[in-house]
Structure formats: structure tokens, C-alpha cells
């Protein structure tokens, strides 16, 4: 079981804040070239790997997972060297207090997000959630030294200390959506053992956290017959409404909703049942908050299915996932491609 977590652990070590994905894209290109027939990086740094099928003029399937992650950009450096920053993607400012960060300037620089000591908090400050524009990063350097390495617009990521939790769980930054990228790799590996007719495009997309830019661009350019989107959904946490969270380790969640193709979704569910693959059902009445929103309406429309991996503590540095869900998702999608398309 742990094989996929090793892959995931490796992938979470890289940085790919939305819009700054070029370095990680190159890493993924190498990874995919080991298991696919050809790989290219497009001009927006989407990674597109083709695994050819046995069919001639068979259907073309795109399996996509976004490779980017949330983060920050340097907004300002004050005269004392404190850095003000802005978010890229959705972030709850409350999780940031006293966090370690890495500023990706001319070289990587570690900093801390300062927090006012409790002794100094006014009564009303204690009641209020802190806002991102009240926070600052302290690198220890003065402004003059700092500006040698850091410019306005440089990316910042939360420093993460990845670790394995009990029962095949892994916790790190950017599990959303490196777990999805890991599913792509798992699927490609599974497909090696199976015979499949369709050509399969494994696509790791950029800028999902901003505006689904990578999915829009790649689905337009590849124009597949079917899109399978792999992304994270919310893992079960105490106090959350049951209908929007999914227990970890019980298998991937198959999306059902108006923007997802009904017939293909049924086929995906049948694949899971016939192969005894644990799975859950994720009801998505709206946009799904994933690349599926973009693929569905690309060009003339692409029938889209959504397979989600439960992840706890989304958009933090301790996003937590279970190995089974990744493993089963790989089995599910590969069998769907081999048996049902």
C-alpha cells in the first residue's frame, strides 16, 4: 500500500504555486516519460503524457489532475524588511499565524509569519479572526539584504513537515492535488497490466486554484472524447456536515451531478461494483469546484466524470490523505478505461 504514498511524498516536496509551475512541470515530465509513450510540456506548463491504446481511431480519454498549489506572492517589503503578502488561491488567514514559510526568490529563504503575543492582544482583537493584510513575514534580514534575493511578486509557500500518520495516512502541504497527480501515475502503471483500446492523455494542469486555466487550455487543445477529472474532496472532520465530507480510506468518491455525464458516471460506478473496488458517492449539485467545470463546456462539450480523493484540512500545510483512496482510484480509473470505454 505504501508505494503510492512514497510517490505522493516525493511530489509534495516540490513547489508549484499557481502561475509558477515550470519547475515542477519538468519533474513531472520525467516521471511520466517512464510510464507513457510520449510527454510534452505546453506553453502554459501543463504536462501532457500520452499512453497509446491498441485501438485504431478509438476514443481519446483525458485524465487530468491539477499540479498547482495554493500559496502567496510578495506584495511589499517595508523599510525594516518585513514582507507583506497576498494569497494565490483560497486561504484561511487564521491558519497562518506563527507558520513557517519559504520565499522562493533568487534563492529559497525561510521566514516566519509573526503573531502578536497574547499579552498584547486587546479584548476585541481576541474575538476577531485575523486578516491576511494584517500579517507579515519576518526573515530576520533587513530590507537591504532581503531585496538582494527577493522581489515583489516572488512566490511564497507554507513550509511543511510531511509525515506519515498511523494507518497509511500521510500529511503534508499540497496533498491537494498531488494526490490526484499520484492517481494519474497509479492509473498509468495499472494500465500497463491491462489491455486498453483508447489513447489516454494524462494531463497535469496548471492554475486550477486560480481559474481552471490549465484545464481550459488543455481540453481545448486535446479535444478528447471523455474527460476524467481527479481532484481532492473534503475528508471527514468532526463538526462538518456529513453530506459534504467523506471518510478517509473508504475509497475514492465518484461525483454525481448535472455537469457530470450521467451515463459515464453510471459506467464508473458499475466498474467499481464489478471489480469490488471500495468507493463512495459524492453529490455535486453545482460547479464541483474542480477542473470538471471547465472541461465540460470546452469547444463542443466534453462528457466529464469526476473522481475525488478525500483530503482532510484542505488548503493547509497538513492536508491528510489515506493511501487506499489513491490506490483504489488508480485501479478504478484504469479498469474503467480498459473495460468500459
Amino acid at each position: 500500500m505504501l508505494g503510492c504514498l512514497d510517490t505522493l511524498k516525493e511530489l509534495t516536496q516540490y513547489t508549484a504555486v499557481s502561475g509558477r509551475e515550470y519547475e515542477f512541470a519538468a519533474v513531472l515530465k520525467d516521471k511520466f516519460s517512464e510510464i507513457c509513450d510520449s510527454v510534452e510540456i505546453d506553453k502554459f506548463y501543463n504536462v501532457i503524457a500520452l499512453k497509446k491504446g491498441m485501438g485504431i481511431n478509438g476514443p481519446r480519454i483525458m485524465v487530468l489532475a491539477h499540479l498547482d498549489e495554493i500559496g502567496f506572492l510578495v506584495k511589499s517589503i517595508d523599510k525594516n524588511g518585513f514582507i507583506k503578502f497576498t494569497n494565490v488561491g483560497g486561504i484561511d488567514a487564521r491558519i497562518l499565524l506563527s507558520h513557517e514559510v519559504i520565499i522562493h526568490g533568487k534563492k529559497d529563504i525561510t521566514g516566519v509569519i509573526g503573531a502578536k503575543p497574547p499579552h498584547m492582544l486587546e479584548a476585541d482583537e481576541k474575538k476577531k479572526a485575523v486578516k491576511i493584510d494584517e500579517l507579515y513575514i519576518d526573515t530576520g534580514m533587513d530590507a537591504k539584504e532581503l531585496k538582494k534575493y527577493v522581489s515583489i511578486g516572488d512566490a511564497i509557500t507554507l513550509k511543511s513537515h510531511p509525515f506519515f500518520l498511523k494507518d497509511n495516512k500521510y500529511s503534508s502541504k499540497s496533498v491537494d492535488n498531488r494526490c490526484g497527480v499520484t492517481v494519474l501515475i497509479e492509473t498509468a502503471n495499472e494500465l500497463k497490466k491491462l489491455k486498453h483500446k483508447p489513447d489516454v492523455y494524462f494531463v497535469a494542469t496548471v492554475q486550477e486554484e486560480l481559474n481552471l486555466a490549465g484545464a481550459r487550455i488543455t481540453s481545448f487543445n486535446i479535444e478528447p472524447d471523455i474527460a476524467i477529472v481527479v481532484d481532492a474532496c473534503h475528508g471527514d472532520v468532526p463538526g462538518a456536515p456529513k453530506e459534504v465530507v467523506f471518510p478517509l480510506g473508504k475509497g475514492p468518491a465518484i461525483g454525481i451531478g448535472p455537469i457530470l455525464n450521467r451515463e459515464l458516471t453510471e459506467r464508473m460506478l458499475d466498474t467499481a461494483k464489478e471489480n469490488n473496488i471500495p468507493h463512495q458517492v459524492d453529490v455535486e449539485p453545482g460547479s464541483t469546484g474542480t477542473d470538471a467545470w471547465a472541461t465540460q463546456v470546452s469547444k463542443y462539450g466534453i462528457p466529464t466524470v469526476l473522481v475525488s480523493i478525500p483530503v482532510r484540512y484542505m488548503h493547509t500545510s497538513i492536508e491528510t490523505v489515506h493511501a487506499n483512496d489513491i490506490k483504489y482510484a488508480g485501479k478504478l480509473i484504469s479498469r474503467f478505461i480498459a473495460e468500459r470505454v
Partner: peptide, 25 residues
């Protein structure tokens, strides 16, 4: 509001706004 762009500081190269992260190239 805090923003590191000044009138007279030269043309500004866009890093981002709400509609785009400028392409690195």
C-alpha cells in the same frame, strides 16, 4: 492601501491581478 507601485517609478510589469497570473515568458 498598501501597494508597491508609485507614480513616476516607471512602467509596472504585471505579476497578477484578479483575472490573470501573467505568463512567466
Amino acid at each position: 492601501e498598501l501597494m508597491e507601485v508609485k507614480c513616476g517609478g516607471g512602467p509596472a510589469i504585471k505579476i497578477k491581478d484578479r483575472s490573470i497570473m501573467a505568463h512567466p515568458d
